[in-house]
Structure formats: structure tokens, C-alpha cells
């Protein structure tokens, strides 16, 4: 396989995952801000900007941090790399470049998601925004399904590797930012806003139901952190993403005979994470831990690029 093809497939995976993540984040933030009993307002939207690392870019627009401008900024604004429309644009460009490697179904999933934003300059009000992100999620789900129905070969694996690495990054950022915002507030732990905030995290990673299944004692921050970091049952947890990266690299190694630093790095990370106790992480400093994880994830990303000669 051409290095460029592999690289495009990998980036396609990353951008589709990013699209999906931003969509979920916007969805959860709208719910938190508008639909919860005590609207969270500015803080909710500020944290959404922080998670996508677009706070500085948004500040430059001079708009107030509230639902309409921020939701617009994170969905239809193509002027910065943190919006759904830009992530989709990048996903589609990469898909086009490898058009013949994809099935028609996979391609149309991306293309249809992209067409949702054709000539769209506003996500609309709360309900319209929820509908918009729901439509995006439906298409990315469709794409995901199509990828799973494709031949089990490098094409699929490079897409899924990109998704796994992007997902690990997204979850780590989400947890880092939310935790940062939540703790210093001085709100009584277990208060109503707090509850809503923690629910937002679960919604963003589609884990509301999973949480109830796995933890019987009601919503507790330590459990949420445990779920998102250490429980590999949850597909969007760090543990699951890390495990998936190892598995996919293994499949690639078997098929291509290419085995190297990326495999070693992913395996080491996986072993470490499987021994990690979330409680210890919290006492030793979650922020530091997550920052370390994000940096390590970036290094794995670079190692993948080197191992498969992306550039």
C-alpha cells in the first residue's frame, strides 16, 4: 500500500472520530445549558471551547460565550480547525484521495455528512442544533458500520487506528477540562449543577447507560473517572482506545510484516494502563496524568507515521 494512501486512511479515521466527538460535545453542552433544571450558561460553553482547544480562536471573534455563537462556532464555522464542518471537510478530502480504496457505502456516509453543511451558516436554536448534531452522528455511525463491513485488511485497519488514537485524545481532553472546571468551583460535591456537569461527560462519550450498569452507587466523580480511564468495556474509555490501538497494530503487523516502535509504544502503554488504579490517579493528580497521556498519545501518533512512512 502506498504510504500516502495509508496516511489518508489514518487521517480519515481521525477526522471522522473528531467530527463525531465535537457533535457529541455540542449535544451534551446544549443539554447542560438549556435543558437541565439549572442552566449552566457561560461555564458550559467555555468548557466546550476548552475541550476543543478553540477558546483562543473564539475569543478573537469578540462574541459572547453563550449558546448561539459558540454552537455556531463549533458546528458550521469553517474558519478554524475545531469545528465539525472543518473536520468533515478534512475527512472528505482524505476520503476523496483514497476514494477507490473505500466502499461506496463508506464514501457516501462521509459525503452525506458533508452535504449536511452545504450552504449552512447557522445551526439554529437549541432544538435545531440538537437535530443537526444528531444528523451528523447518524452519518458517522453509518460510516463506522460501513467500515466494519469492508474487507478486513489494511484499509480498514488504518481507518480504525486513526479512530482509536483520536478517540483516546478526545476522551482525555474531555476529562481533563471538565475535571478542571468542576473541582475548583466550590460547589458541594453531589450538588445539582455538579451532577448535570458529570452527566454531560457521560453523554459526550455515550456512557450514561453504561455507567448505571457498571456502578450501582449513583453518580460519583471517582466512578466517572474510573469508567473513562480504566474500564475497557466502555469503547470510548482510555483503556479501550489503548487496547484497540494495540490490536489494530497487531493485525497490521501480521498482514504487512511491519512491526516496530509504534507497536512497542502501544503495548507498553496498554500494560501500564491495565495496572492503573483510577483512585491512585486522582490522588496523584488527574490533570498531570491526563496531560502525560495526551503527550504519549501524540508520540504514538508520530511513531505510527514513522513506522508506516507516512511522510
Amino acid at each position: 500500500m502506498l504510504s500516502r494512501t495509508a496516511s489518508s486512511l489514518y487521517w480519515l479515521g481521525r477526522y471522522v472520530e473528531r467530527t463525531d466527538f465535537i457533535a457529541r460535545l455540542v449535544e451534551a453542552t446544549v443539554r447542560l445549558d438549556v435543558l437541565s433544571p439549572r442552566p449552566a450558561g457561560e461555564a458550559a460553553w467555555a468548557s466546550a471551547l476548552a475541550v476543543t482547544e478553540t477558546d483562543a480562536a473564539f475569543a478573537k471573534t469578540g462574541q459572547s460565550i453563550s449558546q448561539n455563537p459558540v454552537a455556531r462556532f463549533l458546528t458550521v464555522d469553517s474558519s478554524h480547525p475545531g469545528s465539525i464542518v472543518r473536520a468533515l471537510d478534512m475527512a472528505r478530502n482524505n476520503a476523496r484521495a483514497v476514494r477507490t480504496a473505500l466502499t461506496k457505502e463508506a464514501w457516501t456516509g462521509i459525503n452525506r455528512a458533508w452535504l449536511i453543511f452545504d450552504n449552512r451558516s447557522s445551526p439554529g436554536g437549541a432544538m435545531a442544533t440538537l437535530n443537526l448534531v444528531e444528523a451528523v452522528k447518524a452519518e458517522t455511525r453509518g460510516f463506522e458500520g460501513a467500515v466494519h463491513r469492508m474487507l478486513r485488511n489494511q484499509t480498514t485497519w488504518f481507518i480504525r487506528l486513526g479512530q482509536a488514537i483520536e478517540r483516546a485524545d478526545n476522551t482525555a481532553r474531555l476529562l481533563d477540562v471538565k475535571y478542571h472546571i468542576l473541582l475548583p468551583k466550590g460547589e458541594s460535591v453531589g450538588g445539582v449543577v455538579d451532577r448535570d456537569q458529570w452527566t454531560t461527560i457521560l453523554q459526550t462519550v455515550s456512557a450514561v447507560t453504561a455507567y448505571r450498569w457498571l456502578y450501582s452507587e449513583g453518580l460519583k466523580p471517582a466512578n466517572v473517572i474510573d469508567l473513562l480511564i480504566a474500564r475497557s468495556e466502555l469503547p470510548r474509555s482510555l483503556a479501550a482506545s489503548v487496547e484497540e490501538a494495540v490490536e489494530i497494530l497487531n493485525l497490521l503487523a501480521k498482514r504487512t510484516g511491519l512491526h516496530g516502535e509504534a507497536d512497542r509504544m502501544a503495548r507498553n502503554r496498554h500494560q501500564r494502563l491495565s495496572r492503573t488504579k483510577s483512585g491512585e490517579v486522582i490522588t496523584q493528580g488527574l490533570h498531570q496524568y491526563l496531560q502525560g497521556f495526551i503527550a504519549e498519545n501524540d508520540n504514538l501518533h508520530l511513531a505510527v507515521g514513522r513506522q508506516f512512512k507516512f511522510s
Binding site: M1, L2, S3, R4, A6, T100, Q154, T256, G257, L258, F308, K309
Partner: peptide
Amino acid sequence: LVEAADLVVDDDVVWMRTIA
């Protein structure tokens, strides 16, 4: 199907860059 960036010439020989 290659693009120019997929090809490299070395020692007057053309190569394509693959993952292997």
C-alpha cells in the same frame, strides 16, 4: 494510482513510497 509526492527518484531510479 500515485501522485508525484508518492514517487522519489534516487540514483536515477524511480521508487514509490509504500508503507513497507
